[in-house]
Nucleic acid binder design. Sequence first.
DNA 1: TACGGACTTCGAGCGCACTCCAGGCAAGCG
DNA 2: CGCTTGCCTGGAGTGCGCTCGAAGTCCGTA
Lengths: 158, 158
Amino acid sequence: MTVTETDAADVAAEPDVCASVEAPRIRPGGQTHYTISEVAAACGLSAHTLRWYERIGLMPHVDRSHTGQRRFTDRDLEWLGLVAKLRLTGMPVADMVRYAELVREGEHTFPDRHALLVATREDVRRRIAELRETLAVLDYKIDMYAALRPPENTERTA
Amino acid sequence: MTVTETDAADVAAEPDVCASVEAPRIRPGGQTHYTISEVAAACGLSAHTLRWYERIGLMPHVDRSHTGQRRFTDRDLEWLGLVAKLRLTGMPVADMVRYAELVREGEHTFPDRHALLVATREDVRRRIAELRETLAVLDYKIDMYAALRPPENTERTA
DNA sequence: TACGGACTTCGAGCGCACTCCAGGCAAGCG
DNA sequence: CGCTTGCCTGGAGTGCGCTCGAAGTCCGTA
């Protein structure tokens, strides 16, 4: 139980899982801090959005150079990878901020985080099921239109 | 080729496919027109939203009672079923309006409609793939949190 | 005939997730 | 030294998809 809050954050950021998801380590040469524009290019978000994410508490605290410029770490990139994934599931930004708060609060929020992730997973599963239904409808309609217009297909296949 | 524009719209609305998707025929007694609040209750949209859909051209023209009140048909319900499905794939309303316009323009837009549906299907497939990736990440993280907190699981399973 | 409730139109307002702008600072270069 | 480039901040603006309100009409029941 010598785990500090920082360690807890480490665990939550999960270097390994995110490493397999979003490529960190933009600079292979041991350099592990990046400017905002490098990060923007790497993760597909605008610099504006990255600053905004920090302002609303979605970034777990980015450190600065001696002149006040943001210096993102590999861990930040990993976190952004997770955020990007969750975003495109339709998860509201407010919910992700909530998760980020739990991470900042430390190790005692593990159960809450676990519960939040489980709920999110259920959401994702539901969405996948919905999309599959929609896919079935689209397939049906596409077949119908194809069947209605065979003249275009009259170029014989051999 | 005696198909009129109305017939083309029929084809586009596809009674059969939508019948299998969204239950039409709220009133089984041969009555096939519904007030706005009946439709709202049936499809989960608000009456406001239904009027707004009509205003922006997303509804294929709803007919009215002698006093000017909307009278939705089973075909309208079927169309709304499709719209609902497409909406929750993230398809922008503007794109669905485009599709509705193609339907109104008649039979000669069959190829365009076909193409639009095919493109949409690709979109849906991509989204499903994304969601599956996200699911994998969530599974991984959930397992991690579960492994980190075995004390809670110590209630032996037998 | 009076009343409550559901409907009509048009237009304004809202919440979300960015997106952009103005004004300013710091570093690098010819 | 001046110029350019990249970053900083705070706050205003944008686009989308609804959502609501006001003011009026119509319908059914007592």
